[in-house]
Amino acid sequence: MSIRHGLLALLERGPRYGSQLRTEFESRTGSTWPLNVGQVYTTLNRLERDGMVAQDGEDEAGHALYRITDGGRAELKTWFEKPVDRTSPARDELAIKLAMAVGAPGVDIRAVIQSQRHHTVKAMQDYTRLKAQALAALESGESRERDDVAWLLVLEQLIFQTEAEARWLDHCEARLIRLSATATAAKETGPPAGAVTSAEDVRPAPLR
């Protein structure tokens, strides 16, 4: 998540102070990725160091204001235009957990998958309910428009993500069942030369 670019996008609308930026960031994303004030000010300090924001006096309540600079606008423009890099994916805890569970002593990997599937489906249902509420607010004209549209887009991304995760978990379980059946058949008939003979020798097959 690029906090620095998110803050630059908010500052493009005019000078803001730290707590205001945090509130607007969370409002725009539905508090999906909550920030604390310390994160905001640390990021602002780095942006100021890099010449992308500058202090702009204080408001009537004495809050220190920050404004975006020309360098910050150029950085923001580049961020909007450049695709998000997927060649170096972020670490995914669930994928790592299942990878480590394969062949781990005393671990029922299918139970791990079923537990996660239950949680994932519940999350998907919650996101779907929130999406219905967001759509109702937009259609009734009660929404704040820009923030609610942004929140709707975030919700739909979360729904697609959990749907994909549920399908992947189904695939993982089916893959393990096939591997188990193959291993059982090999034990009953006797393994051909070079065959896998133990769980420790199993390596994940390419996903298809």
Rank of each mutant, 00 (worst) to 15 (best):
M52D: 12
A54P: 02
A54L: 12
Q55H: 15
G57M: 09
G57S: 06
E60M: 05
E60T: 06
A61R: 14
G62Y: 09
H63R: 14
L65G: 06
L65Q: 11
I68P: 02
I68E: 08
I68C: 05
T69K: 01
D70S: 05
G72A: 03
A74P: 00
A74G: 01
A74W: 01
A74V: 04
E75S: 14
W79C: 00
F80Y: 05
E81H: 07
K82L: 03
P83F: 04
V84L: 12
V84E: 11
D85A: 07
P89W: 07
R91H: 02
R91G: 01
E93T: 10
L94E: 11
L94D: 06
K97G: 01
K97P: 00
A99W: 08
M100P: 00
A101F: 05
V102A: 11
G103A: 15
A104G: 03
G106T: 01
D108E: 06
D108L: 04
D108Q: 03
D108N: 10
I109E: 04
A111I: 00
I113E: 00
Q116S: 11
H119F: 11
H119Y: 12
T120V: 13
T120P: 01
K122Y: 09
K122F: 08
A123N: 10
M124Q: 15
M124N: 11
Q125K: 14
D126R: 15
Y127D: 07
Y127S: 06
T128L: 09
T128V: 02
T128C: 06
R129G: 01
R129Y: 04
L130V: 03
L130S: 13
K131P: 00
L135H: 09
L138Q: 11
L138T: 07
E139G: 05
S140F: 02
E142D: 08
S143T: 01
E145H: 09
D148N: 05
D148S: 11
V149Y: 15
A150P: 00
